[in-house]
């Protein structure tokens, strides 16, 4: 059993846990966070970052890794520790560059949604003009104005959960019922957004 086993998870157990759903996924992610927690201390020495700065970059690293695993971008060519350390080091160096130069704004770009990358150019260009960081920020606040259930539903969708997983996690009878409810929540969000 996972909680009676060794204190450090193997790479295989981490990958299996992250792509599972519900509680096992969360437990694995938390365990992963703890497993390489010492990176934070290393960065405070190596890059002279404050502990809070290093911890924030470490959290970003773990979240980036989880996303890469879920989207099958992690090919397993290196050990998880090596891969994480590489992402973390790059983030530390980027952070230092940004804080020691005045070029922060140069690096800011419009958000690009992964889902439009495979679209034909004309459709992609139309959408790219309409996707903006400002609109995302407004919607971020509007989601918080939704009822609790809708907020959970929309956040789970943003996290990449399928309707099947949402149904299981939020107690809907079938994935189809979850889908209908999710679309209703998006409708409500659109109303709030355009009000």
């Amino acid at each position: 059993m996972i909680f009676f086993g060794r204190s450090a998870l193997s790479d295989e157990a981490i990958l299996k846990g992250i792509i599972s759903d519900g509680i096992l996924q969360r437990t694995t992610e938390n365990k992963l966070y703890e497993q390489y927690f010492y990176f934070i201390k290393d960065a405070t020495f190596k890059h002279q970052l404050s502990e809070d700065e290093a911890a924030s970059l470490y959290t970003d690293t773990i979240l980036a890794f989880i996303e890469n695993v879920k989207k099958q971008r992690f090919e397993g060519k290196s050990a998880i520790k090596t891969y994480l350390y590489q992402i973390f080091s790059n983030k530390c160096v980027d952070f230092l560059r940004k804080t020691t130069t005045n070029k922060m704004n140069v690096h800011d770009a419009q958000p690009i949604h992964d889902w439009i990358l495979a679209m034909p150019d004309d459709a992609k260009n139309v959408l790219q003009k309409l996707i903006s960081d400002n609109e995302v920020k407004v919607l971020y606040e509007r989601i918080k104005d939704l009822g609790e259930k809708c907020q959970q539903m929309v956040t789970a969708w943003g996290e990449g959960f399928s309707d099947n997983e949402i149904a299981k996690e939020l107690g809907y009878q079938t994935p189809n019922v979850a889908k209908v409810s999710r679309l209703r929540c998006l409708d409500k969000l659109r109303e709030l957004y355009r009000r």
Partner: peptide, 25 residues
């Protein structure tokens, strides 16, 4: 409407990340 759908998904993803960051914290 498609842009709304995509912007909403990015916003929801940001919110999910913020919540997860708070949990990690």
């Amino acid at each position: 409407n498609t842009a709304f759908y995509l912007n909403a998904n990015l916003a929801a993803k940001n919110l999910a990340n913020e919540k997860r960051k708070a949990e990690f914290d």
